[in-house]
Write a protein that binds this DNA or RNA. Structure first.
Lengths: 414, 414
DNA sequence: AGGCTTTTGTTCACGGCTAGAGCATAAACT
DNA sequence: AGTTTATGCTCTAGCCGTGAACAAAAGCCT
């Protein structure tokens, strides 16, 4: 990603590499293993670990198993080290968790809400601020997953809930308060040297000092890339089925966000030949034919507005026909995307896992004829998510650590 | 991209950065400008330039304009420096060129061919070998653009020409001959330390020691990203219209290739609701409705097989109706891709430029209703390519320099 | 139990790298 | 002709990772 050009940046770069390695393996590997993984000299690793422990970023504990030589230690999260606050906001409830380096999750709060921006985000903001005050400077950042396209700056649209350009950071009241008027330490005209200027995040967008707001599908894909079925996969396609369908390409371990921050919208391509108007404003979107809303519509029940999760699950469990129709629509769209993008693996999360388990044959049968001949020889593997419904929350965490585990992020730590 | 971890890699990394900067600016910037661009100390730049000149990679010439202080020099290609051989193979002819660092192109040969693999690639291979022998060790690599999906290893399918798994490196006879039996300097079991193992290229695929074979659209997109309208654009969409339609996403300056090397196939998604079987094996592909073949079909002329370029150009110039239909199909597909991927700019090359000039209103009118409401506020700019029909050739060059301008690539230079 | 082997952590001299200061150079400006 | 300005060159200082030598801490063998 980056590249050090001076000796000083070298050190910073290797600190990041080491912390990232600890985080990515879930704090399971020993110091000597990490030394080999990163091709460091033992002396270098020694200095790095000592420095990071000194800075309250790492804490070594004895490895449990015992081998032949001198016992090694396992670097893990420091007891007073950085925490990522992660939130998954669904159409009907939200969940808030604190995550250590390495990925251990502690759920702090789960609450249902009424589907309005204020009803959902007001209490959530309070909860975040309360926990933030308690945890103090340990909070390295806040990541928020939402079930709709997110534009840069944190503006969110959830068409079927009636959210239009909802300013999530503002409603969460997590914007840093504007600088108080009066004498300032730094003169107003002074440039801020060495400050990273990119606000782009893999799967999320950040207002400076505020939360990283991202699409749930993109975050689920990010988690899948780091700790799930897409780990080590160079090009993967992740599809998240909830009330509707989200899809995003994962390249080199990160989901692609678009120019405006909202790129995880494969669901809004007309891949299944339908002509039904979509709440998004376009027509015949793939997303109209896959997901809980499509299941409910298929059996003639009311749908939309983020209601009916139980009913949809009932349909999923009982209506062979509705499930097959959903799976077929899913398969046809997958074929189109596989043609275009040639992913190595296609992963399904949310209801996608059940759709694939219960009607995988329908899915594959609908996929096959849509593939180019050259794709049929080596079609991508289609697999259920390894993370289930937890993906979006984990992805929100990863987005925070992605920003923290950089030379600039670490610079801000104490 | 990469990241130095030791002091030695640091030097290699900075050598690459400097050469890349020279190449990317087309050898137009002065040494002092480059020093500032790369945030190097003047002393460091001095050492680097001297080293690169010593190695026959760079040659400084006095800057033409004159300013106040001591005159500075412009680093450019060394007269005996590396050359990229670049080839654009179309359905009916090919073009071979030699390219210096900085991007100056010297066309070496242009020849029509009969559309068969042997007829096209046999003479081309001869030409490449002849020029390769003449230029000797200056040849840093060979890049070949082809009008069809390219799988890793250089297997190419051009459905409408009847090419099926054509082994391009073999037909070009550019595979390195197997090592001669007998005593070898390096013992057979000895590992090759520090050797890069990835064969993946942005927009191309390489057999070790052989040419980099890539899709023409992907190469055109690569060129557009480096020297055209997509320069500096984080997420762009490039569409190349020739006999049919190719499309690829450009992220961070490089077109996305898929897992198997062939990712530039947005043309083979069913975006326009057609049901015509496509030679690719799928049905209703977007590519059926855009391009020279679609124009010819529209007016009832024979099409396919890579024939009829002149007729298609005539239709393009005269048939308002056929052009409008093409432009509308193009617009509808663009809307779908913009929804899904949120590009900052959409660029058109090949016939796409003329389609947009002659029927831009039809294109935009067909695009608009397919967009999500949130995309309509800030739709991406749609622009003709800055490189015209030269893109694929230039992209083939860039793919060679992308591989050469790495620490490993430079290591192999003398 | 005691010595040996194996593996890892620690320390330190060494070479390589870039930054930055000071000086030399070469043009334009006055 | 002297001054100003921008750049190139040279050298020292400081930082970094390497790798070797040594210390430490466990298992293994007799």
């Amino acid at each position: 990603m980056n590249g050090a050009t001076t000796s000083g940046e070298l050190r910073a770069h290797n600190r990041v590499r080491l912390l990232r390695a600890v985080h990515d393996c879930g704090a399971t590997r020993t110091r000597s293993q990490l030394t080999r993984d990163l091709r460091l000299a033992r002396g270098t690793a020694s200095v790095l670990v000592a420095g990071l422990a000194e800075d309250g970023l790492l804490h070594e504990e004895p490895a449990s198993g015992s081998a032949r030589g001198r016992p090694t230690q396992i670097p893990g999260p420091h007891p007073r080290g950085p925490l990522a606050l992660a939130v998954d906001v669904r159409e009907d409830a939200w969940e808030l968790a604190a995550c250590e380096l390495g990925g251990r999750v502690t759920v702090l709060d789960v609450r249902p809400h009424d589907g309005t921006p204020e009803g959902a985000l007001g209490p959530l903001g309070e909860a975040i601020r309360a926990h933030g005050a308690r945890l103090g400077p340990r909070v390295a950042g806040v990541g928020v997953a939402l079930a709709g396209p997110v534009r840069h700056g944190g503006l969110v649209d959830i068409a079927h809930l009636g959210w239009r350009s909802v300013d999530v950071p503002a409603l969460l009241a997590l914007q840093p308060s504007p600088p108080a008027p009066g004498p300032s330490r730094t003169p107003p005209g002074a440039p801020t040297p060495g400050r990273a200027e990119s606000g782009a995040q893999a799967g999320g967008t950040r207002t400076p000092g505020g939360p990283i707001v991202g699409n749930d599908t993109a975050f689920a894909a990010l988690a899948e890339a780091r700790r799930g079925r897409l780990r080590g996969v160079r090009v993967g396609l992740h599809l998240h089925v909830d009330f509707d369908l989200g899809g995003v390409l994962v390249v080199g371990g990160r989901p692609l966000d678009g120019a405006g921050g909202s790129g995880a919208e494969f669901g809004h391509m007309p891949l299944t030949g339908g002509d039904r108007p979509c709440p998004c404003g376009a027509t015949g979107c793939w997303s109209m034919d896959v997901g809980a809303n499509a299941l409910l519509r298929r059996v003639g029940l009311a749908y939309g507005g983020g209601r009916g999760r139980e009913q949809a699950e009932h349909v999923l469990a009982t209506s062979e026909e509705a499930v097959a129709a959903n799976a077929e629509a899913l398969g046809r769209g997958i074929a189109a995307l596989v043609n275009a993008l040639d992913p190595e693996v296609v992963t399904l999360s949310g209801h996608g896992v059940e759709l694939y388990e219960r009607a995988g044959d329908h899915l594959l049968a609908a996929c096959e004829p849509g593939l180019m001949a050259i794709r049929r020889d080596h079609p991508p593997e289609i697999a259920g998510s390894a993370l289930g419904w937890r993906g979006s929350l984990l992805g929100a965490m990863e987005s925070v650590f992605d920003e923290f585990l950089t030379p600039e992020g670490l610079d801000r730590w104490r």
